Simulated assay, not measured.
Amino acid sequence: MTSNLIVRGAPQEYELKLNAWQDLPKHLERRNLKKAMIFHGDKSWEAVKNYFPELTKCETSFYYYGGKCTDDAAAHYAEIAEKEQTQVLIAVGGGKVADLTKLTAYRLNLPIIILPTLAATCAAYTPLSVVYDDEGVMLRYDIFPKATDLVLIDPQVLLESPYELMVAGIGDTLAKWYESDAIISQLAVKPIEIQVAEFAARKCRDILLSESDAALQAMKEQQLNPSFIDIVETNILLAGMVGGFGDEYGRTSGAHSIHDALTVLPDSHKQLHGNKVAYGILVQLMIEQKVAEIRQLLPFYHQLNLPTNLKAMDLSLSEEDFQQVAERASAPDEMIHFMKETITPEVVIQAMKELETLTIDAWS
């Protein structure tokens, strides 16, 4: 753990309101940006393109981002952007689209605008990108010295997003409390920045546990309600504040290290990021020997259909698989070592196996 603490609190501008995307031309005009390169998903773009505004005063080019945030993809699109003399990069999509756009923009020192189509991660809010290799194995995350310039959120767009991705986003955001608490609870003195991160992390947990059911009901009924807005802003804004103010003290520890380790298994790639992180929370709690807390979370997990064990993710691990995952999770540079416990492959394997027994017995 480093003693350095750099606050990267928020995008330069952030706005959530109905029809927020329609203000994009105005935002581009007042920034004097006249040439934009727009990254988007595949199915998501078909679902939201009717919400995207006409940019009559800005020359635009549209690119399907390719489904991955990799170094090669960033280099490829950076080359195109340079040839086109692009002035701004705009991401329309989920976390990987946002991450690739940020990674590409950083290489070119260009402004970044993000229009989220999902509330599944805080990627729209944070100045970092999670980078994978071509096989989908997580390599690293890069933190940038510049915030995103503008985030525009239309809650109606997110209301129409896939239900299961919102659930995964809730699982991912729930980790903010458990991962940051594992680190911050070790501090004898908490600077104000850390206190802000801790407050945001606790609010993430409290809002998710109390309002997720009503928010998901809004999606089922396709009718906006206050809980839906709260969950959207918890998954994006509050979640982003935890790492934004806490830096390494509020970013990730055990749960995400377990997620990252699972990516070495090809069969895990069919599972959503947030589902694997939600599972990672329970493994982390098992390492911390907080079995009572696991039992308290299990009804919430089952209510939302978040995975409580490997079996729930259709993963059947051999002893070799367990070893491979555990070695990756406990690698020297993994953030799981920010926890106070001594982490070894044996500790990880034991926690995973004990969790399997506990959760299967609890609901058998």
Rank of each mutant, 00 (worst) to 15 (best):
A329G: 02
L282K: 07
N305S: 11
I294F: 10
V277W: 01
E327S: 10
L282S: 03
N275A: 06
A326V: 06
Q324G: 01
A292E: 15
V277Q: 06
S316H: 12
F300S: 04
P332H: 03
G280T: 05
K270T: 08
E319M: 07
P266G: 07
Y279C: 08
K276R: 15
V291A: 05
I281A: 01
T344D: 03
P307N: 02
Q284H: 07
A312F: 09
L315K: 08
A326H: 12
L315Q: 10
V291L: 05
S330A: 14
L298E: 13
E288A: 14
Q324D: 02
M286I: 03
P266C: 08
L298Q: 11
P307L: 02
H269E: 00
E288N: 07
M339C: 12
I281E: 06
M335A: 11
E327W: 10
D260R: 01
R328H: 13
D267Q: 15
S330K: 06
L304M: 13
M339H: 03
Q296F: 08
T308W: 04
V277T: 02
P299D: 13
G274Y: 05
I343A: 07
N305Q: 13
V291F: 02
Q271F: 02
D314I: 03
F300K: 00
D260W: 00
V283L: 09
Q303C: 00
P345E: 07
H273S: 05
L262M: 14
D333M: 08
S330M: 05
M339Q: 13
A278R: 05
P307C: 02
D321K: 01
K276S: 11
V264H: 00
Q324E: 12
E319V: 02
L282Y: 08
L282N: 03
Y301A: 03
A292H: 06
F300L: 01
K290H: 10
T344I: 07
M335K: 12
E341L: 00
V277S: 02
E327C: 11
H273C: 08
Q324M: 15
F322N: 00
D314R: 12
